[in-house]
């Protein structure tokens, strides 16, 4: 099991906050504020990135081709200037890395369970 983890790790390492953002975008493309809210919601408020941090995360993910800019969906609500919002979506590479990271976490979780840490 650990061998498998190492194999994924060599391929790509992502931080917890990057994982959370990819997880949000894996459902559907989304825009800045919605991503922030979704991360806060899915971590039970434990992770609440402010705007600057979020866009640095997006910048890093885009530089690694895990996330890309996408066109706003038809009929989407415009932004404060009345222009279409900036949407971000996960790429196929991003999907794969996310899945690998999730499996890696699941493997760790199994180890924890096997040691009765999770009751």
């Amino acid at each position: 099991m650990l061998n498998a983890c190492n194999r994924w790790k060599v391929l790509e390492t992502i931080s917890p906050i990057e994982f959370q953002v990819l997880l949000v975008l894996s459902e559907k493309p989304s825009y800045g504020y919605a991503i922030m809210q979704a991360v806060e919601e899915q971590t039970g408020g434990r992770q609440s990135p402010e705007i600057g941090s979020l866009y640095r995360v997006l910048s890093r993910l885009m530089a690694r081709n895990l996330v890309q800019e996408e066109a706003a969906p038809h009929g989407g609500e415009p932004n404060h200037r009345g222009l279409p919002r900036k949407y971000y979506g996960i790429t196929s590479v991003g999907q794969r890395v996310l899945r690998e990271e999730a499996e890696h976490l699941a493997a760790i979780l199994d180890v924890a369970k096997s040691r009765d840490l999770l009751g």
Binding site: Y33, I51, L58, H80, R85, K86
Partner: peptide, 20 residues
């Protein structure tokens, strides 16, 4: 470089946050 790419989106996100 960062500003050109993300400033409009950051401003948009800030405006969204301000509104709610």
């Amino acid at each position: 470089g960062f500003r050109t790419r993300f400033a409009p989106a950051m401003e948009e996100t800030f405006a969204d946050g301000l509104a709610v």
